[in-house]
Amino acid sequence: MGRIAAMSIGLIGRKVGMTQVFQDDGTMVAVSVLEVQPNTVTRLRTTARDGYTAVQLGTDETRTLTRPEAGQLKDLPKLKTIHEFRLDSVDEFTVGQKLDVSLFEAGEIVDVTGVSKGKNFAGHIKRHHFKRGPKTHGSDHHREPGSIGPGTTPGRVYKGMRMAGHMGDQRITIKKLRVVRADAERNLLLVKGSLPGARNALIFVRKV
């Protein structure tokens, strides 16, 4: 089996918003705040049984689960959000174990994955950073995309031509973000820079 890129443990969190904090050297840094409630290990995937190795984590306790969902969790707490992190080895984890932000420490580099804000049907200017035409001086070329390719030969538009269309609401991974602070007391994780998605959006934070 080929090695896939994401092979490290992470946590499931939610985006709170952005602010700025002072660092130890007195400089200020813009940070995104993530709320990471302790995650429960809900299942271990092993090569023998499942053909791959991974740790399945759950969070967001709820009162109502469908019976199939409840059956998966058995006697574990009722968890709404489940996600698997693929690993080389799951020996150090046990089902029912809790993982919290103390998994990370300040200065560490992480990758984050989330779903970006949907921008609906967006024009080529917003979506692909095209330039607009002149507003005045007899121009009829205000927000036109310009030429989209040759004529009779080949008689079609090339695949992948950048045009207007649906923008955002995509799964986005931002790599190499630095952890500024991991606050296990308040279950908060502060990372430098921005995160995909709106407030309350589901975010996966992974060790590199």
């Binding site: 952005m18 602010t19 700025q20 904090v21 705040v33």
Partner: peptide
């Protein structure tokens, strides 16, 4: 607010 809480000890 959580965001205010994060910076409150630095104010």
């Amino acid at each position: 607010n959580v965001l205010d809480e994060v910076v409150s000890d630095q104010l």
